[in-house]
Design a protein around this nucleic acid. Sequence first.
DNA 1: CGCATAAGTTCATCCGTACAACAAATATGC
DNA 2: GCATATTTGTTGTACGGATGAACTTATGCG
Lengths: 420, 420
Amino acid sequence: MNRTPVSLAARQGTLREHNLALVARAVFESPAPRSRADLSVVTGLTRATVSVLVDQLVDAEILRELPPLAPQRAGRPAVPLTPAARSIVGLGLEVNVDYLGGRVVDLTGAVVAERVTPGDFHASDPADVLARLGTLARDLLAEVDAQGMRVAGARLALPGLVDARAGRLQVAPNLGWSELDPVPLLGLDPGLRFDVANEAKLAGLAQSALAHGGPPVPSDPAPGAPPLPDDGARPGPSSYLYVSGDVGIGSAIVIDRQLFLGRHGWSGEIGHVVVDPHGPRCPCGATGCLEQYAGKDALLRAAGLGVDAQVADLVAALDAGDARATAAAARAGSALGSALADFMNLVDIDTVLLGGIYPDLLPYLRAPLLTGLRTRVLAAPWAEFEVSAALVGSYAAMTGGARLVLRDVLAHPADWVTPV
Amino acid sequence: MNRTPVSLAARQGTLREHNLALVARAVFESPAPRSRADLSVVTGLTRATVSVLVDQLVDAEILRELPPLAPQRAGRPAVPLTPAARSIVGLGLEVNVDYLGGRVVDLTGAVVAERVTPGDFHASDPADVLARLGTLARDLLAEVDAQGMRVAGARLALPGLVDARAGRLQVAPNLGWSELDPVPLLGLDPGLRFDVANEAKLAGLAQSALAHGGPPVPSDPAPGAPPLPDDGARPGPSSYLYVSGDVGIGSAIVIDRQLFLGRHGWSGEIGHVVVDPHGPRCPCGATGCLEQYAGKDALLRAAGLGVDAQVADLVAALDAGDARATAAAARAGSALGSALADFMNLVDIDTVLLGGIYPDLLPYLRAPLLTGLRTRVLAAPWAEFEVSAALVGSYAAMTGGARLVLRDVLAHPADWVTPV
DNA sequence: CGCATAAGTTCATCCGTACAACAAATATGC
DNA sequence: GCATATTTGTTGTACGGATGAACTTATGCG
């Protein structure tokens, strides 16, 4: 999922690439704009060197100079530098059970273009659906191209087991797809850098900011809205587990703002962790998987609601104090607690962000969930775990995919700087 | 656990450090000695640069030149380069329930000094025990110092929950220790770089070679034995889970030969993963933990043997076809399968190496274990998992600790090269 | 208006690698 | 036995990139 260097040998150019990335990251990380002199202090490079590097980054439209603001103290006023808006952008595409769409995000984290089509893609034809998504993507690309933006690459999010290295989908049960090489079916320009990843993993990454320590993602940015002002808001945690709850339950392990994919990209399949081997049978072939307690369908059924019911109906029943609904939520919460405890024991992560259907249900899940963690996590007396609702809004996987593309740009700005 | 760089800025010296490490690693990785010309091809550096770097590494006694061997083809004969034996060494110390001791390992991976004292440290006094270990360590250090070797640092392995960053032991149930800052109690020279880690994690690392791709560890090297000849043996897997089974069950997650510690160093606590919530109560406070099925005491008890019995007795009973023993092993195997399946679903690892008491029991555990994996791992149809016995011999944690020290040397050889 | 102050730029220097030519040590062909 | 081909390792020059000090630019303050 990352660019591979041509050689491991470090030559002079490697220095420049490294420091270019260092300076760029320093600007992106900072909540407030920084001057060249600031950057010199922060990075440890001399002002002279920083000047050269910044000029190149401004040339490449990765950074932009702002008009100097009214100086407060003596001395030549500083030129503030910020990430450039609407210059280099990333494309995030997604096919999910009830919609498909794409988002274009720029280096400030703003959504500059978006197209989403609702639909029912349960047991759909991959070639057909991906061709539709391809058309939608071409429209998006034409739109941003007309505005002079350059597209750095694209990510496709799919709700299934994706081999991230090979770019193949192994199986997406809810779509009814399997053994698929999805990118060619989009019919896009093969020159565009394209990667495929699991939906939950990209959504989990949307939770994290673009750069390490950077500004947090707006909860649900309206397309075309101006980039939100930098208010120096607290950045989210840098290491966490993002859990995406729907019919299935997936998750993303994020450590130091880096996605932990595992050998193939199949990490985080928390939906099939053992909760009770004597529990109900799961379509995966095993019994008592977490999904059978805390998955959307399982929850609604246990609450005595039809499968056609929405999560809102469940919330209403819970608010009304319905006994079956309350029992179902308690069962789900305690199952989640058990599965998350396994996770914490194995991976030593103390922050869990719940996304998908869970934020609305969290008030009813929290108590049994925390009880499960306290009794099962070995390090519980010393760890301070936090379980909270994820901040990401809808279509998080698209945002996360686009952001991942831009993160590559930020990690290798030299690719965008004119070699002269 | 790693050296922190003074600044993130890359300057000229950073290049040299990087390439120095690159060249050193290339030599250590190779099963056969390499010449400067070889290294130039492998690393992508020019022969001129490689020459300069190699000279510095030979000066620092990290590499050594061998006498040129009988040339096979035309041209000036190459000078073979290998890791230097008995020059820079690492110290690994360990306190466990029934022994304490230390090992000194050199850059070739050979054990150059060792002292182990058996004992019963169940419910022991930490100050007392650690003072004894400190004396033992001083003897070892004096011994290798007399032979002109330089000690790069030390690691202390403890069978408990260790906060690797803070160097603190939270709790070691089987020793009866808790809330402890163990390093000062050793009473060693504070100038010696010292870190503390969990026993299973260091033992898991002993499984891996010193450098990525390097020669595998000898099964149980005799102290003082000459370094084994490089036979080009297949290096072990680079990503795996090492499971250390005893009364408790711990594990080490190794990814690309790097130990994955988690936020505090508390990853891999597989012994307390849920196997069956209705199962027996565990001292940890929860119910149905893996340890209650596959831990040593639980296994022996289920097999109808006394707790004083040895694993050898269980193996004998199994070989004799004893019904209770067979049932206990089947139960343990299937519990291990369930817990390891959770692990694979969460972390996407496909190789498991079983250490501690498991290698002897493996023939009886394997079938139910693999059945558990096949039914519970979501990616089972596409992953080829391997479950095998760990190769490491006794006192693996000491070896692993010493090796970890040397790995730091190899990662930062510039620290050992004369700055002129 | 002159001085203090801070930001940004210019230029000589240093350091480490690249490139090319050369020296060293061996095999082979006649 | 000697010239030639071949490969290893070394030497010297060129080049790219960071450094540090001096310099220029733009402001506040007395």
